[in-house]
């Protein structure tokens, strides 16, 4: 999860050191681009929005007070920039209704996934995340970027930790449902 690039010096960036900002871009570009890609589902658009996010980060870095983690602050800007683009494009933001996925089915899915080849598994996971709504994809992505920290997720989304917990639970359910649909029943059985 952690990147190996040195921590950028915020004071130096504010002072006009562009090399330091390049360090910051290098450190967070993959994460910001992943959020954009999972929310917008389009490579060109995600690239453009990720670049716009960094421009916004550069412009408002002076306002960063340090009351949240730098990463949380960056993800929040990226998330909001993606939301703005989705609203501008009038893309569907709403989540679909959740069909019940029983504990047995979840266990079944887990077993089937274990047996799959890594390459096949990666493609399936990628497709499943792509099938989620932008908000569900963002919630799951941000939660795992924030090292499973519910409070940081809540700060990024500017919601209460309890609301974040409920939203995360629903996003998990929807991911499992999408996964169940992606893996045809006979395919699940063949891995059992």
């Amino acid at each position: 999860m952690e990147q190996t690039v040195d921590q950028p010096n915020i004071e130096a960036i504010i002072g006009g050191d562009s090399q330091e900002f390049a360090k910051l871009v290098d450190k967070y570009k993959v994460l910001v681009f992943t959020i954009a890609m999972r929310m917008l589902k389009n490579r060109e658009e995600a690239e453009e929005v990720a670049q716009d996010s960094f421009l916004k980060i550069y412009k408002s870095l002076k306002k960063f007070k340090g009351d949240a983690k730098l990463s949380t602050w960056i993800y929040r800007i990226a998330y909001n920039t993606c939301l703005d683009r989705i609203k501008k494009n009038k893309k569907e933001l709403n989540n679909r209704s959740i069909d019940e996925v029983s504990g047995y089915q979840v266990a079944e899915l887990g077993n089937a996934l274990e047996e799959m080849l890594q390459k096949e598994k990666s493609a399936l996971i990628k497709n499943s995340i792509q099938s989620l709504s932008p908000t569900d994809a963002a919630i799951l992505t941000l939660y795992y970027f924030e090292e499973n920290n519910l409070n940081e997720l809540a700060k990024t989304l500017k919601i209460s930790p309890n609301t974040a917990k409920i939203k995360l639970y629903r996003a998990r359910l929807r991911l499992a449902e999408v996964l169940k649909k992606q893996m045809e029943p006979n395919k699940i059985e063949s891995y059992e």
Partner: peptide, 21 residues
């Protein structure tokens, strides 16, 4: 059920590769 789901999604998300710009 909840724990099963959490475990499954944790594993999935850990395996999910990052997108590269």
């Amino acid at each position: 059920d909840n724990e099963h789901l959490e475990k499954l999604v944790n594993e999935l998300m850990e395996d999910a590769s990052y997108e590269k710009p």
